[in-house]
Write a protein that binds this DNA or RNA. Structure first.
Lengths: 215, 215
DNA sequence: ATGCCTATTTACAAACTTGTCAATAAGGTC
DNA sequence: GACCTTATTGACAAGTTTGTAAATAGGCAT
């Protein structure tokens, strides 16, 4: 802790990445308002002016943080949607997992105290996801069946909101019940939720009942 | 702004309430870490030592804030459940409205950076709600039909998480689309969600064919 | 090796934040 | 009206936080 005066010199890219990692960890706990440059620097064992050097000022760091979170969410969600073979439960698991690891917390901060810049990005993400899922539903639907896009929007909205809330509230219940119990409970809920959606989508028995009951 | 040296003297109760109101407004934006005593005092046109006088120290203010938020959530949810006559859509509307007005934001801060004290309270609220709804379901169920409590738990969890996410994310989309469009969109989603739940609960037509549209 | 670029550090400054303390005054009680 | 309680204020202190500026040194090109 005293000397060992070997000064470590990172590439600018590496330094930025490490700083963002440390700042993310802090933000997940205390939110953007709780980020202290000196604390972040201390976590990395560097001096705080390094952060100023790489991000200009504190606000620059926050901006970079928001950009990173939105991109991370988009990437995870797109992978979740495109990789799995439209099996409801698989997608659900991927989406729920996408929010874990502090991402939900970070997004909560940004959604609440967010700047104007990331709003458009966030909306674009939503639109892109809705479009992708809508295409998949249309493809896999029997000919002649119309898939209501509003129904798809609602599903995406519900799943996103639920996964988000699960990540936020679930972590609270987790601390009391221990990890094993939590993982099981979380999985059970996802299973229940998947069945609810499957019946709505008609994946189970009724093929033509995709979205919206024909009154 | 200069003098007008009429010093306003409130009752201790009034002062505490006004301070909590102002602090809540700030917390909804920046979280507990973003609360500055001087800012809160400035919002009220008082000097910041008043806050210290009434709450001891900063942490005392935060504690009072968390207590207030949890109690407010419990009251709103219990009213929502007990008042309406088990009509799914009504309850859903009440629950969604319960989170509006910044309560969801405040709860998000507290859920993320919450202290140990309010965990137990929050869990008690959840348990009480599940128990109440479970009783209602059992009462209104046809004789011989068994209501799985795990199913009730899942429903409560899903509705809570969705309402929470709606309050957090919805506000973001709101700013772009204007208020009228938002109210309509939010209502439409709630309507869609209510129908999804009704089919699961079997409230509509088919008692046993929960899910799956009646052809 | 020499020199350049720049990541990093040390030292410092200015502003801000919580908290303390004595003085002041508003409102109720006698 | 006099008095007492206490909400409120202004001034101040100590610690913290962001930001600046010059000095240092690691790595890369030549």
């Amino acid at each position: 802790m005293t000397s060992a005066t070997k000064r470590i010199r990172r590439t600018a890219e590496d330094a930025r990445r490490q700083i963002l990692d440390a700042a993310e960890a802090r933000m997940a706990q205390s939110g953007p308002a709780g980020i202290r440059l000196q604390d972040v620097a201390a976590d990395l064992g560097i001096s705080h002016p390094v952060i100023l050097h790489h991000f200009g000022n504190r606000e620059g760091l926050i901006r970079a943080l928001t950009h990173r979170a939105v991109v991370e969410l988009k990437d995870k969600l797109m992978v979740a949607i495109e990789s799995s073979d439209v099996h409801t439960e698989d997608i659900l698991g991927e989406v729920f997992n996408a929010f874990r690891g502090g991402l939900a917390q970070r997004l909560a901060w940004l959604a609440i105290a967010g700047t104007d810049a990331d709003h458009e990005q966030h909306d674009m993400v939503t639109l892109e996801i809705v479009r992708t899922i809508q295409e998949k539903r249309v493809e896999s639907a029997p000919p002649g069946v119309v898939i209501d896009e509003e129904d798809t929007k609602s599903i995406v909205y519900l799943v996103t909101a639920a996964a988000f809330g699960d990540a936020i509230f679930g972590s609270q219940l987790r601390r009391r019940a221990g990890l094993a119990a939590d993982a099981a409970a979380s999985a059970a809920f996802r299973h229940w939720f998947a069945r609810l959606l499957r019946t709505h989508l008609g994946e189970d028995e009724e093929p033509e009942a995709a979205g919206g009951c024909p009154a």
